[in-house]
Amino acid sequence: MAARPLALSRSTLDRAAEHRLDEAWLLSTWSHPGTRVLVISNGRARVVDTQDGRTELVLLSSFEAPEGDRYFLGVEGQGPDATAYFAVAAESLPGRLDGEAREAGLREVGAQLGDRDAGLLVHAVALENWHRSHRYCSRCGHPTAQAAAGHVRRCTACAHEHYPRTDPAVIMLITDDQDRALLGRQAIWPEGRYSTLAGFVEPGESLEQAVAREVHEEAGVVVADCRYVASQPWPFPCSLMLGFLGRAEAANGGTAIQVDGEELSEARWFTREELRAGMEAGTVLPPSGISIARRLVELWYGEPLPEAARW
């Protein structure tokens, strides 16, 4: 199956990090009439659905933007024709005079946005989440202040610099000696929702070790080997999902399922025919289209999952 970009890994911008400490450049660029601003509030932004079926972010000029923390996201293009993009984290989203815009988050529209807009929203959501939860210095407890155009927080007392946090998490599609896929479900998910297994990488642990540990802890299955596929940011609030395909150990009961009852309420091996039949009957719901889990399932399945199964 031909590879295509993951929904939340797309971007067209140069992040232009060399400008983040150049206050004169940032101020001049912010005031430029061609600069565009994404307003974000609690992970949500205004979007508009176009007549030709696309979904786009509502971007304002800097003169229209409300007050709020300002983040420099990058530039698109070269030379005098380049466009700079900022985000403003506001208390609430501004209205839209034409009434056509609606409020949405990444989970709802991440897969429908174009490459530029997907990259803008992922970057802005990740920064807003981090700034909201890192107001104080972990060294001395004093307040921190934004710096480097939103990509650093500096302690107002000890001057220690804090950088945006990213938590690595492995997500894996494991198959057995019959080429069946291991999928599980959490009790809090909608009825019939199944997905790949996943978990956070622990300190002092390799990615491969994390894959084996998480699968065994959650489902009792022993992983014989695995290979890296791709990664995708997952700013809910600050993860980086690292996708793997793996194979279960066939000998000595290595494929026997025993769920932990905490992370998973149920897990089972699916053949392609069983997954297809379940989706067609509506008794099995696959992972979301913005998740790397869906791509892993499709790599095993051999083709994109049916449109009717999307949500």
Rank of each mutant, 00 (worst) to 15 (best):
V47F: 13
Q51S: 14
D52Q: 10
R54V: 08
E56P: 14
L59Q: 02
L60C: 01
L60A: 03
S62F: 10
F63W: 14
E64F: 06
A65M: 04
P66L: 11
P66E: 05
G68Y: 13
D69V: 13
D69H: 15
D69G: 14
D69F: 14
R70Q: 07
Y71M: 08
F72T: 05
V75N: 08
E76D: 11
E76L: 14
Q78L: 12
G79Y: 06
P80E: 05
D81Y: 12
A82H: 08
T83M: 07
T83P: 06
A84P: 01
Y85V: 01
A87H: 00
V88W: 05
A90P: 07
S92H: 11
L93D: 00
L93V: 02
P94N: 04
G95E: 11
L97E: 13
D98P: 01
E100V: 12
A101R: 02
R102A: 14
E103F: 01
E103Q: 08
G105Y: 02
R107G: 15
R107C: 12
E108W: 11
E108I: 02
E108S: 08
V109F: 01
G110F: 06
G110H: 03
A111I: 05
A111G: 10
Q112E: 14
Q112G: 05
Q112K: 14
Q112H: 07
L113G: 00
L113T: 01
G114I: 00
G114H: 00
R116C: 00
R116W: 02
A118Q: 07
A118V: 10
A118I: 08
G119Q: 03
L120N: 01
V122F: 03
V122N: 00
A124C: 04
A124F: 00
V125H: 05
V125Q: 04
A126Y: 04
A126C: 04
E128P: 05
N129C: 02
R132Y: 02
R132E: 10
S133E: 11
R135T: 13
C137G: 06
C137L: 01
C137P: 04
C137H: 01
S138Q: 13
S138K: 08
R139G: 12
G141N: 04
G141C: 03
H142I: 07
H142R: 10
T144Q: 07
T144W: 07
T144F: 07
A147G: 07
A147M: 04
V152P: 10
R153P: 06
C155W: 00
T156V: 04
A157D: 08
A157K: 05
A159V: 12
A159N: 14
H160P: 10
H160I: 15
E161H: 15
E161R: 15
E161C: 15
H162D: 14
